[in-house]
């Protein structure tokens, strides 16, 4: 990772990465690959947002798919029934999902570990049952077909290439926001809550506040992912927003490396690609996938890109009279 230490080289690398991402649809014309890329993008939104809750604030949530689903249904219903513009619908999705995050988090975030896990899991099940049973609005198990594509200033976004660019923009936006949050006082406060709540309280941090912030922000981004997904696939049904999806997202976060944004990205990429790559052995692929999860946890529990690789001074200010970046080599944690 030596090349990443120099900020200038880092910028060049990011630049090359961006150009590659932008050029991807021209290099690869197979639309199946584009579809896989878009799926990865959606999962990056979901995984990085869940990482804020589980990786940074240390709260185990097994109901992330519920917020994803709420966002999808809110977005789809607004676009279908009220002809709301996609981008407004997306904001509405974020707001409504975030509100549900607040609603669930407020009474339950003082519960410890496993208890919170089951409550979020139960919430996920309840939300799914509402999708299935509230047929007047959601059409129940039949789902909602014909969700329109977005349009910007009269230009219709349609076709996989356009959706590909849209998800790239959303991913970059999400990564920007997550990065800013994590490298701020709020993000640091979340981490203290994860490490030791009593110590955090002893320095004036109210744990529930930061758990709630993490929860609401994560829910809002899951909502955005849901709205995007609804518009991309054009059809949603309750079967997408199930417990298994929550588990897959959590697995991405944990396998990638808790408390690490690059980790969540890697987790999303790998867990989307592995089942696709194992497709040739279709019958055995999920079997192998399950076994891989176990082995990974035995042999590399910190994930592919654990938090131990995070940059040290997360406040991103060099101490020592405000000198900047003189010894960025020290910024990398030595393991």
């Amino acid at each position: 990772m030596k090349i990443l230490r120099n900020p200038k080289q880092k910028k060049v690398l990011y630049g090359i990465g961006l150009i590659l991402l932008a050029a991807f649809p021209f290099l690869i014309t197979n639309s199946y690959y584009l579809h896989v890329c878009i799926s990865i993008g959606v999962y990056i939104l979901l995984a990085t947002s869940l990482n804020l809750v589980t990786g940074f604030a240390g709260q185990l949530s097994l109901g992330h798919a519920a917020f994803y689903g709420i966002g999808a249904y809110v977005g789809a219903l607004l676009m279908l029934n009220f002809d709301v513009n996609f981008f407004l619908a997306m904001i509405a999705s974020a707001v409504v999902s975030g509100l549900f995050g607040l609603l669930l988090g407020l009474p339950t975030l003082r519960l410890r570990g496993d208890y919170l896990a089951i409550v979020t899991l139960g919430f996920g099940e309840i939300v799914r049952l509402v999708f299935v049973n509230w047929a007047e609005v959601t059409r129940g198990p039949l789902g909602l077909p014909g969700i329109p594509s977005p349009s910007i200033f009269g230009f219709q976004i349609s076709g996989r290439t356009a959706f590909y660019y849209l998800i790239i923009v959303l991913v970059l936006l999400t990564l920007f926001v997550m990065n800013r949050i994590v490298n701020s006082g709020v993000g640091m406060a979340m981490q203290t809550v994860k490490i030791d709540e009593i110590a955090a309280e002893s320095i004036g941090i109210y744990p529930i506040k930061y758990k709630l912030i993490a929860f609401v922000v994560a829910a809002a981004f899951a909502g955005i992912a849901g709205c995007y997904y609804a518009s991309y696939i054009a059809y949603i049904s309750p079967t997408t927003f199930v417990y298994n999806t929550s588990v897959t997202i959590l697995a991405m976060v944990v396998l990638g490396g808790l408390g690490s944004i690059p980790g969540s990205i890697i987790g999303a990429v790998i867990l989307t690609l592995v089942p696709e790559l194992l497709r040739f052995m279709s019958d055995y692929r999920m079997l192998i996938f399950g076994a891989l999860m176990v082995f990974m946890m035995i042999f590399r529990p910190e994930g592919f890109w654990g938090a131990s690789k995070r940059v040290k001074n997360i406040y991103k200010i060099k101490a020592g009279g405000g000198k900047n970046g003189s010894d960025s080599g020290d910024n990398q944690r030595h393991n």
Binding site: V177, R180, I181, S184, G185, V186, G187, M188, A189, T192, I203, G204, I205, I213, V217, Y315
Partner: peptide, 15 residues
Amino acid sequence: IANPDCHRESIWEAV
């Protein structure tokens, strides 16, 4: 993180 100005940063400020 123990400094009140640090952990009282609002989420808007942070972003």
